[in-house]
Design a protein around this nucleic acid. Structure first.
Lengths: 248, 248
DNA sequence: CGGTCGATTTCTGTATACCGTAGACCGTAG
DNA sequence: CTACGGTCTACGGTATACAGAAATCGACCG
């Protein structure tokens, strides 16, 4: 008996029953990334309860999920606090992001079926360009950029890698949300062009060229954000100095 | 001195208030890694409740923690199940492990103060050699090997990287626990010698040599485990074939 | 005799209630 | 005026209780 065993059927789920905990987690993530809940703010469970309209257990579960994503930190007997990123945190996020992206490309390239594999990447780029032309808000443009990179990482078909990368992207959004100076004010067209060149590097089939293109792309930005933060460590400061020299 | 975030410093906590959820998570992890709970087994919350002597909320929290560590998977309305690793899972674990270890070394090297930085690594190696001479059980030897590698990764002072690496090690233990064929039956002395050579590579100060040594070390083993598993994917099979060729 | 439909049982998901602890505030004493 | 101690409040941790959904088993029908 038992041919259709339990473990599968997760992928092709027809209907997704919206669990309260997941909805609460989604709402809280939006609140944090949207700046409604500011870094360092104490997250009192009962307050969130009446704010979200659900009871404490789902709220607690959602908070655990956010802790896993690195958006909040727990103080053992004192509750959850929205994460305050230090300079060292940004160092960790950026270095790990670069490392994971490089690893993903190394595993994914050469693509077995470039045309089919790259379809999601092309779609993400199309969204990005469309939003740029339509003059959509900067925040959305940033998110679409994240989606593009996520599609690239997903080329490796590596769930653990993709999951960790997604979590890092959330933390990068947290980083952006607090720092208005991060409005790089790059033109949408230039942003799209840079991403298009990445796609072209992937389409070329040249592994080393693609790796170099993504490495170069990843090394951009974030310096302005880091400058405004405390909490440096020897490691992060050394790295920051290197980056500053390279960028100059 | 302070490299952790200001408010916590969980390491030097004088009194450690043992939360029931954490104790339950620890107990469940031990049960799973010890084979008491087998892969594919349904984890009924009420059963665990009476088995662990705590109520459901802590149990649920512990299960979430284990889900985060990748030891159990959740089926939306059907509860938690001990993870059944597929061949593709092992592919993911090993590739990500290698990638993270390499990244950690790249970030850590060259060491700023080799003598002080390497102290934890030396301690871990000493434990390993002592256990080998004392003829301690193979499982302990494996765990001490993990501790050695964790100490190496921690050289990078990269909490996110270390955390992800630790999670992967748990999944590797899960992999080992089910597969008795993984008793490589390497002599304890040989095991210790291989790790000692890694330490020496770190002490040499030669960055490239250290990277090469760890890469070589990481490429060992796990082939036997993979062979006995289903669930291959094009990516994992391609990778496995490469590894098999390289090892031959 | 096999398949399908329905009822029962069990388990997850959610809500409410209680307890212990930690932080804050105030009072008093030096 | 400052510092220390006690109490008080409020929040997190934990337990119990309830509702809805899914799986299983049995019965009925084809």
């Amino acid at each position: 008996m038992r041919r259709m065993n339990a473990p599968e059927a997760a992928a092709g789920r027809i209907v997704a029953p919206p669990s309260m905990a997941r909805l609460a987690a989604e709402a809280l993530r939006a609140m944090i990334l949207g700046g409604e809940l500011q870094p360092g703010e104490h997250l009192v469970e009962t307050r969130l309860t009446e704010r979200l309209g659900v009871s404490r257990p789902p709220v607690r579960e959602a908070l655990q999920s956010l802790q896993h994503d690195g958006l909040v930190v727990q103080h053992p007997r004192r509750g959850m606090v929205v994460r305050q990123l230090t300079r060292h945190d940004v160092y960790e996020i950026v270095t790990l992001r670069d490392g994971l992206e490089t690893l993903a490309l190394r595993l994914a390239l050469p693509l077995t079926d470039p045309d089919a594999d790259l379809a999601p990447v092309r779609d993400a780029l199309a969204d990005l360009e469309r939003a740029g032309e339509a003059g959509t808000g900067g925040a959305t443009l940033v998110e679409l950029g994240y989606a593009f990179h996520l599609a690239v990482v997903d080329l490796a078909r590596h769930e653990r890698l993709t999951g960790t990368y997604r979590s890092l992207q959330l933390q990068m959004q947290l980083c952006m949300s607090l720092n208005v100076a991060s409005r790089t004010q790059e033109s949408p067209a230039g942003n799209a062009a840079r991403h298009r060149s990445l796609l072209e590097a992937l389409e070329s089939g040249e592994v080393d060229a693609a790796l170099a293109a993504f490495a170069e792309h990843g090394h951009r930005s974030f310096l302005a954000v880091v400058e405004g933060l405390d909490g440096g460590t020897p490691e992060s400061d050394r790295w920051l100095a290197q980056r500053r020299d390279a960028g100059a």
